[in-house]
Design a binder for these strands. Structure first.
Length: 497
RNA sequence: GGCCCCGUUGUCUAGCGGUCUAGGACGCCGCCCUCUCACGGCGGUAGCAGGGGUUCGAAUCCCCUCGGGGCUACCA
């Protein structure tokens, strides 16, 4: 049985991720971007990146850069966007102001929009009054029937009007959501919302519609905080005589307290996860599972597998709590998949930040240093879950005088410990060549000579060599430390105990 | 308050009327491996929000209640 190529007969898929540059890329935004990207790639469609910077007060250039950086780090590449252009450029809303003006004019001409001179203060007053009377507030259309003369007069007074949409009074707007099914909204609950702000800049609902339509977006996949905007947008499409795209609303990502995930819950930006030592592959995989699943049995998916299997039908509709523990576990899974070279490359910046290496990259380090770092990282590869944990985990391989943990000190304080360490030092000093097999033999010889168990020698040795109670296998530790350093540490500890 | 969305173990989820004494994953607990820790292997813990229907039969369909969330801006 062959499956037919998907969506081959209909128009090619075009989706977009449209962040507003008012901060960093949030994991919720990243998940939305990911689902759009997966949908586009799965359907061999186009993934568009558009910057929605109509909030002049809060949008910043730094945010744009940060968001683009995070998307690149995640490997979510776009086919059209602000930096690379495309057939529907520009991809930044503040560079498309003429377009919104043009369609605003069309709406005015069609009698579907009108100028409103009410000031925010006046509106607030009336809103408050409605609240006091326990009434639901909806813009009262005070300015709907202003004559041209009255409008002139108000403008003369220096009032800068907003443009309001004349929304439908009767009937209902139905949305057939690809994830949620049919949703129905009574039109009379919608007020005449603002299309153009007093400075002529469009509001989100207007700009998004004009752009989605003019950019030929076929599927709008976004967070469910936009569900209540959808009927407004559909009405705009209708008023302009346009065919609305298909909608798919993703449920929110929640914090542990089941409220919308926010800074209060700790790390929430993609950049923070990068800085905290997470791998982009792990992040992608984890985010994909937040709302999507193939069969609930498989958890680990490569990028290619996600693309191959991703469909909107398998996206769930219930909100998901972001689980840092599972992300961490998954990061560990991906960490263990890395080759020694990849591991070294990935962990290097953290090693540098931890002060264990000087060079900014493995390529710039002497081969000997590189080898040593690589080996140390390998020894900890199954024992650590984030890249950021490496420096602390391997520190004693790189520093001469290491603090001795309390638990480790107990091993050194045991009667006879000093003699054992002394003997071990002597043996190791004479071990040649200094490799695993011979090192193990040296340990065995001391044990036999002293008539003690492996643990009775190894535990104090570990304490002496690492200052810790736990470490990688002791023979690995000794080998990497090298003969001179191992002997030195053993004797030093023996002398102290 | 109004409108809308959602509701399977602590968390992510499978389940689309019978194969469910509800499966997988994270977490947690125990055992094995073992020089410690981790990895790995094995096992355990815990759930269909509640109540009414429909049906021979409901986690699955309908209604109500309850709970959670979102929107209700000249923010997106």
């Amino acid at each position: 049985m062959f499956s037919l190529p998907r969506a081959e007969w209909s128009e090619p898929v075009r989706v977009r991720f449209a962040p507003s540059p008012t901060g960093y890329l949030h994991v919720g935004g990243a998940r939305t971007a990911l689902f759009n990207w997966l949908f586009a790639r799965h359907n061999r469609g186009t993934f568009v990146l558009r910057i929605e910077d109509t909030d002049l007060a809060r949008s910043t250039e730094e945010s744009v850069t940060a968001i683009l950086d995070s998307l690149r780090w995640l490997g979510l590449d776009w086919d059209e966007g602000p930096d690379i252009g495309g057939p529907y450029a520009p991809y930044v809303q503040t560079e498309r102001l003429d377009l919104y003006q043009h369609y605003a004019q069309k709406l005015v001409e069609a009698g579907r929009a009108y100028w409103c001179f009410c000031t925010p203060e006046e509106l607030e007053e009336r809103r408050q009054q409605a609240r006091d009377n326990q009434e639901a507030w909806k813009y009262d259309r005070k300015c709907l029937h202003l004559t041209p003369q009255e409008q002139e007069r108000l403008r003369g007074e220096g009032r800068q009007p907003v443009l309001r949409f004349y929304s439908e009074d009767t009937g209902a707007t139905v949305v057939d959501d690809l994830i949620r099914g049919r949703m129905r909204f009574e039109n009379d609950v919608l007020e005449d919302f603002v299309l153009l702000k007093h400075d002529g800049v469009p509001t989100y609902n207007f700009a998004a519609v004009v752009d989605d339509a003019s950019m030929k977006i076929t599927h709008v996949i976004r967070g469910d905080d936009h569900i209540s905007n959808t009927p407004k947008q559909i009405q705009i499409y209708r008023a302009l005589g346009w065919e609305p795209p298909k909608f798919a609303h993703l449920s929110m990502i929640l914090g542990p307290d089941h409220t919308r995930l926010s800074k209060r819950h700790g790390a929430t930006s993609v950049g923070q996860y990068k800085d905290n030592g997470y791998l982009p592959e792990a992040m992608i995989n984890y985010l994909a599972l937040l709302g999507w699943s193939l069969n609930a049995t498989e958890q680990i998916f490569s990028r290619e597998e996600l693309i191959r299997h991703f469909t909107l039908e398998r996206v769930g509709k219930n909100p998901a709590v972001f689980d840092n523990q599972k992300l961490e576990w998954m990061n560990g899974v991906y960490l263990r998949k890395l080759s020694p070279e990849q591991l070294t490359q990935a962990a290097w910046p953290f090693m540098q930040a931890g002060g264990l290496v000087q060079e900014p990259s493995p390529a710039e380090a002497p081969a000997e240093v590189r080898q040593r770092v690589q080996r140390a990282l390998q020894l900890m590869q199954t024992r650590v879950r984030t890249l950021a944990a490496f420096p602390e985990a391997v520190r004693y391989f790189f520093t001469a005088d290491n603090p001795v943990e309390e638990a480790a000190a107990a091993f050194l304080a045991q009667p006879g410990a000093a003699a054992r360490l002394q003997k071990l030092a002597d043996r190791l000093e004479a071990t040649e060549p200094f490799h695993q097999e011979n090192i193990q033999a040296a340990f065995a010889a001391v044990q036999e000579e002293l008539g003690i168990s492996a643990g009775e020698l190894i535990h104090p040795a570990r304490a002496a060599l690492t200052g810790r109670k736990v470490s990688p296998g002791i023979y690995d530790v000794v080998e990497l430390l090298g003969r001179d350093e191992s002997v030195r540490r053993l004797r030093q500890a023996a002398g102290r105990s």
